[in-house]
Design a protein around this nucleic acid. Structure first.
Lengths: 212, 212, 212, 212
DNA sequence: CATGAATGAGTCTTCATTCAT
DNA sequence: AATGAATGAAGACTCATTCAT
């Protein structure tokens, strides 16, 4: 009667995380409406009722998926931008690499796609994404640009638009990957694309260090 | 016996078009899964069964919405690119304006968003969009760029990537508008954004006509 | 402007009959519920609304199908039985042949099957069939038997049961044909079956004409 | 929130069987097309969705009804015929009684009627019935007859036809009961009918045990 | 705590029937 | 009279959610 090896209830601590992970997979594959709670549970290796122990509704689970993807991944980039104090063209290239890397290694790409896809159904998610991701990230970049303009290193113009000029190929490439690669389209080589793009755009954006 | 009002009006020639229009509205607002056929019918001013006279299933109706948006709007732009034979910076500005205009005046923007949103559920739609819109439009632009490179007017590099460098802010702006403006975000002023973007990027893209 | 050859409105007279014929076909193939009015109309070569010019509802059309099959086919047999005045074994063989022939050449078999199939849904049809076909035909046969019993030519016993003893293989054979032959079963050779059956049963039914 | 009554009771082991029973009732009364899944559920005392926990579709439920009726009821009779080794007239009377008894006490009669009724809609059911019931039962009887013929106890002739000669009144009686008794027809007294029938037909079928 | 059987609201789709032309 | 576009009631089936065990 002595339970020798308590196989069950292993990693009880990680169950919500397991469920969120499974949910991301299923939501990504099927969309919110097409995702069945039972499949999420099955993929997480839990019973049909288990998700409801942690998430009151399917919507709450969806929200958790989005929140989970944002929180741990965003801060480093913002940090980088805010604390940086070197040549501007280097920080642009660095940030771009950072974001590209996140898009490759984390679930951010899939979640962007999910948020866009379900923005009509879940305006709240779109709002969260807008406020926590877009505003902050674009803001950090715009601030950088603004400071550069004040120092005369960047040509005049709306800083937010300049920011878009810099990173839009990257974001579009991610959306393209999530949308069209599953149906067989050739994905862009994002680092290469961004390298060429920055080589093209940065000369026009950065003003000549004044000649003495 | 108990029906006081006449059950139907004239069978307009425009019935299917009305239904497709209503369907675009409802699909845009609710997504495919969230759209109810009955609501589409109601908005088109027809009975619940009427859409099925023209479209066998909800999916077919969705496909019609996508097709309808693509067919009449795409050719003019492609034409423009193919028949153009003037200074390159002008055609880039012109095409950009054209696309921006289409995005403002037609349903293209909403349909892009729809195709992205439902690409998991309807890979076929994504495929159609990819093959008929992206490939052709991007191809036309890339061809233009390639010819410019051969004439020594455009800096070397992957033409498709250059094309992305040019139009990605516009496309991203459209996606942004469809995704975040409904929840209160301030839309980009696309013409202004693109003007500043082209002012920034074109100098880096176009090689100096060398002075003799 | 002069209509030379009035192709249309040919045989207007036969339209209800055409429709009933088509209805029998479709009802037989699909059952009442599975039959679509539009298909009946199409098979009859008329418009979707035409059947309603002659039959107020689908049920009425069904009733017409049944009525149509019964009326012209039954009387001859009843007549035969009632007017016959020869040796009994011959009339039994003759009636059997007659019925077998009807089952082969007319729609009776299909309608029997239809009435049985839809008897739950249309008790009224079952009632009509019971009262006009079964009661009358079985009654005619029973009367014949009864008279034979009174003349000492047929063994005692319930005349209706004797009638069943005589014709049940035939009726069952028809039901079998309508039910199982469509799925590939080998049909009974009804004439042969009945010949052997009568050879077997009649000796037991008919009393020996006593030898003087 | 607003549900006052408990939503469900015990999950009995008998759930599927209850549902099949209810389905038989409703299918018998209304036919397949006329039966509503919701009514079947209600009669089984379960919710609208419950039948789908056990039977993927209405058709599968129908198939289960047929299967359920056949499996437990058929073997005893076949057994009887195959293991029997006494006087032939007795086995014919015995089998007849057995079948009549089954027809009275089990659902076989209703299911026969159902299979015949829906044979157009569900050829597969007809096929199952034909292969498992008709072929086997008729085959067992025919084998018996064949052996009798080899021993010179039964008159020559097609054994299968002889089998029909013997049992057709019984089968027809069952069909009659299921079809016309519900609309008020007087049912045949099957045991009496068969007694008289066998008294009539067996003398013609069995050859005289030759006198020594 | 965890399970999964059970619930029932919600939606696509069909098709008999109507009636303006 | 004849047509066929249009109507709308009806029903199979799904799946988020609940809760007895």
């Amino acid at each position: 009667m002595t339970t020798a090896t308590p196989k069950w209830r292993r990693q009880k601590e990680t169950r919500p995380a397991d469920i969120v992970r499974a949910a991301l997979d299923v939501f990504s594959e099927k969309g919110f409406a097409g995702a069945r709670m039972e499949e999420i549970a099955a993929r997480a290796g839990v019973s049909k009722g288990a998700p409801y122990l942690y998430f009151p509704t399917k919507e709450d689970l969806f929200a958790a998926v989005v929140r989970e993807a944002v929180e741990p991944n965003l801060d480093p980039i913002i940090q980088l931008a805010q604390s940086y104090d070197g040549p501007l063209d280097q920080i642009f290239r660095l940030m771009t690499q950072q974001v590209a890397s996140l898009a490759e290694t984390t679930s951010l790409g899939r979640v962007v796609k999910l948020v866009i896809s379900e923005s009509q159904t879940f305006p709240e998610m779109a709002r969260i994404w807008h406020d926590t991701v877009i505003t902050r990230a674009l803001g950090a970049l715009a601030t950088l640009i603004e400071r550069g303009q004040q120092r005369g290193e960047i040509r005049p113009g709306d800083p937010r638009s300049h920011a878009i000029s810099i990173i839009s190929p990257l974001l579009l490439g991610v959306i393209f990957r999530e949308t069209f690669v599953p149906i067989g389209a050739k994905p862009f080589d994002l680092p290469a694309l961004m390298q060429q793009h920055l080589d093209t755009v940065l000369p026009g954006l950065l003003l000549e260090k004044q000649t003495p």
